[in-house]
């Protein structure tokens, strides 16, 4: 499996005296939507940040597209970085730039200077995330929470990534907006053949999107597989997480979204 988008082997992380990860092994196969779930403080977001190289683990290694994350020359590392897009929890739009400039930013950075081409590309990306063309001139501060996420997704898609990482894609959105966003991500996943890794603790989103679920607890991957398999694993954490009354209702809702 040399061209697996993400391979994590023996990853260990420690913050001060606290161990967050004690040996994590995870292989994300191409074309799947993998959801990382776990209680708060279980290191989901930390793991996501380590996958893209924003944080370095204390031990273990991460490989992207079959190559170690930090291997090779600067140019090769940059090349690898451009093959994935990341959606941050709060969007992380550049607040000094307009929506157009935000989405065009990564494209300009790789040397596409033709203005007409840039405008077409940005229009296409905005249409992909179902935004009207007239938001292009607005500033991030003038957008609603749901629009910020959509623009951030458009920016993450700007470089035609093969891998998309989403940190809490539906946190802070109302149920209607978040089901819209879930539909959008699923449609993009189908249309573009992306591999998606998402961190979430929203069970609606999980049930509607994920083809595989990785449960993170006590610093390990407790279980990894399709949701139905996970539901049958005997473990106190999974028991609490997936079999509570609220959890059942949420999972049923999420499945209904399909």
């Amino acid at each position: 499996m040399s061209d697996c988008p993400i391979q994590v082997r023996g990853l260990e992380t420690r913050f001060g005296q606290t161990w967050v990860h004690r040996g994590i092994d995870l292989v994300v196969p191409a074309g799947e939507v993998v959801a990382l779930v776990g209680g708060s403080g279980s290191g989901k977001t930390t793991l996501l940040r380590q996958m893209v190289g924003l944080l370095r683990p204390n031990a273990g290694a991460v490989s992207l597209f079959g190559e170690p994350l930090f291997a090779g020359s600067r140019a090769e590392q940059l090349e690898r970085r451009r093959r994935f897009g990341m959606l941050f929890q709060h969007g992380a739009l550049f607040s000094a730039l307009s929506v157009f400039a935000n989405v065009a930013f990564p494209l300009r950075e790789i040397g596409i200077a033709d203005d007409a081409m840039l405008r077409d590309l940005v229009q296409l990306k905005l249409a992909m995330v179902e935004l009207d063309a007239d938001v292009a001139l607005r500033m991030p501060a003038e957008l609603s929470g749901g629009m910020v996420k959509r623009v951030a997704l458009a920016r993450a898609l700007a470089l035609e990534p093969e891998l998309l990482l989403l940190d809490e894609p539906t946190a802070g959105l109302d149920p209607d907006l978040s089901s819209g966003f879930v539909r959008l991500i699923r449609a993009l996943h189908r249309a573009l053949g992306l591999t998606v890794v998402l961190v979430t603790h929203d069970l609606d989103t999980l049930a509607a999107l994920a083809t595989r679920v990785a449960v993170l607890a006590e610093g390990r991957i407790l279980a990894f597989g399709p949701l139905d398999e996970i539901m049958n694993v005997q473990d106190p954490f999974i028991e609490r997480f997936f079999h509570g009354e609220r959890a059942r209702a949420a999972l049923a809702r999420g499945r209904g979204m399909g």
Binding site: R119, A133, D134, A136, A191
Partner: peptide, 18 residues
């Protein structure tokens, strides 16, 4: 097919100009 279908949907109105 889908890629070009998406492009055809865009129309040629373009983005608003500053």
């Amino acid at each position: 097919e889908p890629v070009f279908a998406r492009l055809a949907e865009l129309g040629d109105s373009g983005l608003p100009v500053e």
